[in-house]
Design a protein around this nucleic acid. Structure first.
Length: 383
DNA sequence: CGAACCGGGTTCTGCCATCAGA
DNA sequence: TCTGATGGCAGAACCCGGTTCG
């Protein structure tokens, strides 16, 4: 009973504060409304927002260096709120080591941040710190993607998410990578994350896999972005891969938790289009159907490469004296940038390197190893 | 010993649509 | 009816080096 009374007192207190605050605004607002009523047609008056913008809030934001135009464009409702916490947020973030410039940028890009209470912020920060080692790491993520931290006001859901991810067998290093690279995962509703995990487990079971839980864990830890994709996208990509590659169950299962795990992120149309154009291109280059299938299985990442980029790369290799057969055998050379490949081909050509006898593995090596190899070849040719 | 195999590291937000509840 | 919360989308590679093999 006492508690209920307490809440009532608090409520009425906050309401009276709100009233005080809006009273101060009324004279100005009334004036501007009258003016616009006189100057504007009735229809445009009816389009006026119900609540005016909070002038003292605007002043505060401008003082903070916030881009008010951006705020108005993104979350105009925030500017009309009577009670906001921009000062508390600033103090809080400053205490965590964020510069005024970073704070202004955060609020400009995700205005709703100023509606979070200090208690909420402290609790959420603590939960993130359970996963990340330092405040600086969190600040850098907020600077990169303020929405990930501020979009949800549900700290309990965040807590459940962390518990859920741990229950999948993901270790603290996995969680760290997940929160750093795909912070949105943690503001998903835990139900949404569960749906994706269930989808993955179902796919595994359908394909005759023996350990669906481990399959889901493997897919997530090898593709940190999977949980911020829709189940529709992932499901469709899996279905399309199965039919277009003509794979049996165990082949598909191996692909999905192996090299193919990344291409599930691609949009359905992009993956489909890339597959079709690539297949045509390879056929034109004289590749057989079974060769193409083998290529996709051994190097599915080829579907990630934009058609234009891939064409350039292939042409560059073929022009450099490498055969399609060699590329099919060592597709990993396609991993390297066109610029890198071109440079290496030039250097090797200068030294009279013969791909026919030596193969093309030299193109698939780190900068260091390649340089060492070139040095050795140069010494040999000087003798 | 060098070459080949192989897996792993990094990377990924900002906007719009929808829906439920105030 | 407005707004906050949430879901979903487009965008689209490159590189390194430990370990094993011959």
């Amino acid at each position: 009973m006492a508690a209920v009374t307490g809440v009532r007192v608090l409520l009425s207190l906050s309401r009276s504060l709100m009233m005080q605050r809006s009273f101060r605004l009324i004279p100005l607002k009334l004036a501007s409304t009258c003016l616009s009523t006189r100057l504007c047609s009735i229809s445009s008056v009816s389009k006026q927002p119900a609540n005016p913008e909070n002038d003292s809030l605007l002043d505060n934001l401008i003082l903070m260096g916030v881009d008010v135009k951006m705020v108005r464009q993104r979350q105009p409702g925030v500017l009309r709120k009577a009670l906001t916490n921009e000062k508390g947020l600033t103090q809080f973030l400053q205490g965590k080591g964020a510069s005024p410039k970073v704070i202004a940028s955060i609020v400009s890009r995700y205005p709703r941040a100023i509606t979070r209470s200090i208690e909420h912020l402290e609790q959420r920060w603590k939960l993130w710190r359970n996963v990340l080692a330092t405040d600086a790491e969190i600040v850098s993520i907020l600077d990169r993607s303020p929405e990930s931290f501020f979009r949800s006001s549900d700290n309990e859901n965040l807590e459940k998410n962390i518990a859920f991810l741990i229950s999948l067998g993901l270790n603290s290093k996995d969680l760290h990578r997940l929160l750093t690279n795909a912070p949105r995962t943690f503001s998903n509703s835990v139900e949404l994350n569960k749906q994706m995990v269930e989808l993955l487990e179902d796919v595994c079971a359908d394909l005759g896999g023996k350990d669906p839980e481990n399959f889901a864990k493997t897919v997530i830890s090898r593709n940190l972005y999977i949980l911020i994709r829709s189940t529709k996208r992932v499901r469709t990509n899996i279905d399309n891969l199965r039919t277009s590659l003509n794979l049996n169950n165990s082949e598909l299962l191996a692909l999905l938790q192996g090299n193919g795990v990344e291409i599930l992120n691609l949009s359905n149309e992009y993956l489909k289009n890339n597959f079709n154009t690539l297949q045509q291109k390879l056929a034109l280059l004289g590749c057989h159907e079974d060769e193409i299938k083998k290529l996709f299985i051994s190097y599915p990442r080829i579907l990630y490469i934009r058609t234009k980029t891939l064409n350039t790369k292939l042409d560059c290799l073929l022009k450099g004296g490498i055969t399609m057969k060699q590329i099919l055998e060592k597709p990993k050379v396609l991993d390297y940038s066109t610029q890198n490949i071109t440079g290496r081909l030039e250097e090797l050509q200068r030294l009279g390197y013969d791909f026919k006898t030596n193969g093309i593995n030299i193109l698939d090596s780190s900068r260091k190893r390649f340089a060492a190899k070139i040095e050795k070849l140069t010494a040999l040719s000087d003798d």
